[in-house]
């Protein structure tokens, strides 16, 4: 499987490269280093959120509340900054991540302790968290003039040609790949999603693992709350509306199986970058905004179709011995439904 995954990741890299090449024919300069750094920087938040979503999806769950979580923590942190400008930025970032983790823990507890299906639990909290952002702000905006310069400018500070926002994404990717591949928690994520019963018998607490996946997703959503508000220099209730679906799409394009237990950090990151390239390229090559959304959606479906084919091949491989029993249902349907 790791060989197929590597193959698929290489393929994604190739597809992204081809896309960039094609776009740069229409829009010279698209492939310039500054432009690529800009696309990477622009996709940072999606990459970070996709990694949190990936942790949750690995355990056979889904977190639809990430964007609402981002909106609420972003609002809370922006209001705090406006009201108490003396609070240092690192403390604010820690507070945002903690608040996000708390919201994630609420999701996790509902799934772990009460046994509510994650899609239902997080569909509920999606509305609740955004509603809370509304209650908190009274519908008002926090704009640029109310934020401190440090709050606004730190993610924009450039280091070696890449803003700190992009470096933050790189740091998160590095930490998450170590956590997923080299720690007991990471192994538990894959085992709990790959075969929950086997994991249970091996002494892995599947419910607790799922809970921590939601906490991780929430904490990263909290971090992105700050990054988003700072980047767009405004906080209001509707920021990042619908963005949770982009995170799921990034995971699915990157080969994170919605059946759980399969996927790599590289895949999720490339899935996000793929979406980032498309979104950045379409306006540059003068495609009407009306068509942009339709084209993005079409490309996502094509990517998911490709992914479903991969899944099917996997199923055949495993059930080779059982060919005589007749056709084996493929996970293609479930795969498509989640995207």
């Amino acid at each position: 499987m790791s060989r197929i995954l590597k193959y698929r990741e290489l393929l994604l890299v190739a597809i992204i490269a081809v896309l960039i090449a094609v776009f740069s024919v229409r829009a010279p300069g698209f492939a310039a280093p500054e432009s690529l750094a800009n696309i990477f920087n622009d996709t940072s938040i999606l990459m970070i959120l996709a990694l949190g979503q990936m942790a949750v999806i690995l355990t056979r769950s889904i977190d639809l509340s990430v964007a609402a979580n981002l909106s609420f923590t972003g609002m809370a942190i922006a209001m705090t900054n406006a009201a108490f400008p003396q609070i240092p930025l690192p403390l604010l970032v820690v507070a945002a991540m903690s608040l996000g983790a708390l919201l994630g823990a609420i999701n996790g507890l509902m799934v772990w302790r009460i046994g509510i299906p994650s899609i239902v639990a997080t569909l509920g909290t999606l509305t609740i968290y955004r509603g809370m952002a509304f209650v908190l702000s009274g519908g008002a905006w926090v704009n640029q003039t109310q934020m401190t310069p440090a709050f606004l400018n730190t993610p924009r500070a450039s280091l070696l040609g890449l803003p700190l926002l992009g470096w933050t994404a790189i740091l998160v990717i590095a930490v998450i790949s170590i956590v997923f591949t080299r720690t007991v928690f990471g192994r538990a994520l894959y085992a709990a999603g790959g075969n929950p019963t086997a994991a249970l018998y091996a002494g892995i607490d599947v419910g607790r693992t799922r809970f921590y996946a939601f906490v991780l997703s929430g904490a990263l959503a909290g971090l992105c709350g700050y990054l988003w508000v700072s980047r767009y220099a405004v906080a209001y209730v509707d920021i990042a509306a619908g963005f949770e679906l982009d995170t799921v799409a990034a995971c699915v394009i990157g080969g994170i199986s919605t059946l759980g237990g399969i996927g790599s950090v590289g895949g999720a990151v490339l899935g996000a970058l793929f979406l980032g390239v498309i979104k950045n390229a379409l306006p540059v090559i003068n495609i009407s905004p009306f068509w942009q959304m339709a084209i993005s959606g079409f490309v996502i479906i094509v990517a998911v179709l490709f992914n479903a084919r991969q899944e099917k091949r996997k199923g055949r491989l495993i059930l080779r011995d059982a060919v005589k029993r007749g056709p084996v249902p493929t996970p293609a349907q479930t795969e498509g439904a989640a995207a």
């Binding site: 894959y190 790959g194 075969n195 019963t197 086997a198 018998y201 237990g261 399969i262 495993i318």
Partner: peptide, 9 residues
């Protein structure tokens, strides 16, 4: 069904 995680090494 209960013993191994098939997609894991």
């Amino acid at each position: 069904r209960h013993g191994a995680v098939l997609q894991m090494p």
